[in-house]
């Protein structure tokens, strides 16, 4: 089946939408799915480790979480099986989570409810921009600029934590 968005690549994802009072299903290729916001994040980031020349953690036999999910299941469906999966597959998940969010450390509220919220200040928006500039500097191999930005970001974050 050919992707209904670009008409070129093979369709791998099926997305639902509502049109003319009906539920419709559209078939999309990986690229178009990602572009329109329907990507499978594991397919994008989970399998790519090999290409980056990074060693995947050694897998001797197929690990299975208490809920029955295997890493294979997770990558194929793009969905975790249960809360325990995050522990069971922690090592393999960490880089995927980092790629999706640019971070792997929670900084929001917790069930105890009284964790202080990181209050945004002027630096909040500035930090976002600086982080973006850092990424671009790295991508364009402008490493001197990247080092300067990294130091600036560290200072801003230190100020954040003090308050």
């Amino acid at each position: 089946m050919i992707c209904q968005a670009c008409g070129k690549n093979t369709a791998t994802t099926h997305v639902k939408t509502v049109r003319n009072g009906e539920l419709r299903e559209y078939s999309l290729c990986g690229e178009c799915a990602k572009r329109l916001g329907y990507g499978n994040l594991f397919a994008e980031f989970g399998k790519g480790l090999g290409f980056l020349g990074m060693r995947s953690p050694e897998i001797t036999e197929e690990e299975r979480c208490a809920c029955g999910a295997t890493w294979e299941d997770i990558v194929r469906s793009g969905k975790m099986g249960c809360a325990q999966c995050y522990e069971t597959f922690y090592t393999r998940l960490l880089p995927v989570v980092e790629r999706i969010h640019g971070s792997s450390r929670h900084r929001g509220k917790s069930p105890e409810g009284n964790l202080p919220q990181v209050a945004p200040k002027e630096e909040g928006g500035l930090l976002l921009v600086k982080k973006q500039q850092l990424k671009e500097a790295i991508e364009t191999e402008n490493f001197e600029e990247a080092v300067t930005l990294r130091d600036e970001i560290r200072m801003l974050e230190a100020k954040h934590h003090e308050s």
Partner: peptide, 17 residues
Amino acid sequence: RVSLGISEQEALFNLKS
């Protein structure tokens, strides 16, 4: 899009700006 590594208030603030 990002919900990990950022507090609720920060995310709302950025979205608003």
